[in-house]
Design a protein around this nucleic acid. Structure first.
Lengths: 339, 339
DNA sequence: ATCGGTCATGTGATCGGTCACACATGCTCG
DNA sequence: CGAGCATGTGTGACCGATCACATGACCGAT
């Protein structure tokens, strides 16, 4: 904007101090808003900053203070289905608390991801790391002098109980029972990738509920979050399979299921009922409108970020998040067809 | 893992050097893989690193080298429809070139976003900034000593010519002409938010083509990227509007359009043809399958990131990206109904 | 006249690395 | 046999901030 100092080098606090005729420490204090100043001093410092177009070097500051104000969310690599509402909410919380949230996309296997996350924690670049997927070998930790804090959402423990709300699949039981109440007896589950806590939990609850309630499972197929998965699952189904209800891993999968049913000439919900998970923005606009679970991703994002920030500050983490999933039954479910 | 040094402080290169019986410089060289070493030296240094559980402090390194290896993508705040395939591809390029890509979600008006981006560029924390939206007052720049490089994708210039491939809307003309060839005469455009270069460009080309080809526009409505927008646009349409073809701003909007048509009892494509933009993963699985433009987001992401990296390295930026949009006509378009 | 306290500012060390350069050793070659 | 060179390593300055502590001016109280 104004004269851009003399050379291409960026100016430092010392140069500002010299230009203002004060000590570097005075400038530093000014920048941090500390201590009272003589009006004249303020004026001179401000003029010098303006003239030299000075901006503090965050790196240098971080080196001394060991604070960076940056929290990092690490995401597994197939980033296509990034949980954006969650990230948006998490970012909002971070912003409110004075942090900058960055998203780091990390490639590779769970082991490689864990190594990269570890590296990030040790680099000094961030004060906290939030992982949305499990990181084998790393455990949640408060911030220490040696590393950044770590919060993990959606991780499973040894008994496959998700500790994060992400993995809470209890509503799958509700789905199955509601469908059973409408007369459905034979179910198909199209599962997601089993490395994901949430996918594994949904499958587990599905099978448990089928068994507990004396219903029939035609089986579990699939293994990805994509529409293709759902499409293939239905196309491979025998004409006389007897399946009248499909529990899909998520809405993407459910879209594929609905499309395949259409292609086979099966009406939804008259011939087949379908339920997804996630309540994508377009799901209620599908024809027929897709039944799903609204997972309050925003709430989960807030929760996760608040938890991380508490760990960073070595405060008490927030209490366990209440159940926040909501089952939305729309046009894609109906009474089971008569045999 | 092993003994965690003595205290809570993290160990430094000097401590490693002392433990290994070499100079700090030798350790530094070892870490950077420079120069040859005596086998014994390597052994001692590795043992010391292992024993002290040493990790280099990236901040301290960056301070001296002025390199951070971090490129930042700044996204506007309503992050719900984050262009994930683009980000994924961009991240891949960054990774391949030895950079870490972070995504910074920035809140506020375009002006505020520009200010935050500026701050990020001046902080020294990142070497380059890639903005997916326009930043008023900031222009693309190579990396200088004073700030990070900036690349802007989808920005418009004074004459509303998008400089980024994102804003290339030329296929809108093709869409309109293909529909006209099927007998459509009266069109509706449901536009996106006009602050977005891409939305503005699509609208402009729509209107230009209508005028140039002597067709009729029922008007332009809407102004957001959401299904609600498309839904409302159709619900408000008079029964005798004469509109037989809708050009929607993107697939989200198109989903809303299709749903509303269904609710009004209009068949697609027999009564109404609909075209979206973006080719969402679920679009080809919709019933009827949604016609759209596959924008090769991944290609755009790669292009943008390569451009940024070239700016950072002060090399020649890649040549202008070739046309990469593809029109996909699916079930949602058909011949115009007879009056 | 001296003392203690507040106000406003200055001095030098420090964070943990890299950079520039010096230096010691052993080998080859004229 | 010493110059020249490659090999391997060490010394101290430096990046740009903050931190800990010192200092000088001014004030009212003893």
């Amino acid at each position: 904007m104004t004269s851009d100092a003399s050379s291409g080098r960026r100016s430092t606090i010392h140069e500002v101090a010299r230009a203002a005729g004060v000590s570097h420490q005075t400038v530093s204090r000014y920048l941090r808003g500390l201590g009272p100043f003589r009006p004249q001093t303020i004026e001179q410092v401000e003029a010098a900053i303006e003239e030299l177009n000075y901006r503090p070097n965050t790196i240098a500051r971080s080196m001394r203070t060991r604070r960076t104000g940056v929290l990092s969310v690490v995401l597994p690599s197939p980033v296509e289905q990034m949980p954006t509402p969650m990230l948006a909410a998490a970012g909002e919380v971070a912003h409110r608390e004075g942090f900058l949230m960055e998203i780091a996309v990390v490639e590779g296997s769970p082991q490689e991801r864990a190594a990269r996350a570890r590296e990030l924690m040790d680099s000094g670049r961030v004060e906290g790391v939030l992982s949305l997927s499990g990181l084998p070998g790393l455990e949640e930790s408060p911030r220490s002098a040696t590393t950044a804090a770590l919060a993990v959402l959606g991780q499973y423990d040894d008994r496959l109980r998700g500790i994060g709300p992400l993995a809470d699949a209890s509503l799958v039981a509700e789905i199955v029972r509601r469908l059973a109440a409408m007369g459905h007896r034979r179910f198909l589950h199209v599962q997601g990738p089993q490395e994901w806590a949430s996918a594994a939990a949904r499958r587990q609850i599905f099978e448990e509920t089928i068994a507990a309630d004396g219903l029939e499972s035609h089986g579990v197929v699939g293994g990805a979050w994509s529409p293709e998965t759902g499409h293939a699952a239905i196309m491979e189904l025998a004409e006389d399979s007897g399946v009248t209800a499909v529990v899909a891993a998520n809405d993407y999968v459910a879209f594929g299921v609905m499309r395949a049913a259409h292609e086979r000439g099966w009406r939804i919900p008259e011939d087949l009922s379908v339920v997804g998970w996630d309540d994508l923005g377009v799901s209620r606009y599908a024809v027929p409108a897709l039944s799903t679970v609204a997972a309050d991703r925003a709430g989960q994002g807030r929760f996760a970020m608040e938890r991380l920030i508490a760990l960073v500050r070595e405060q008490d983490p927030p209490t366990v998040m209440p159940e926040m999933n909501t089952l939305l039954l729309r046009e894609s479910v109906g009474p089971a067809p008569r045999r």
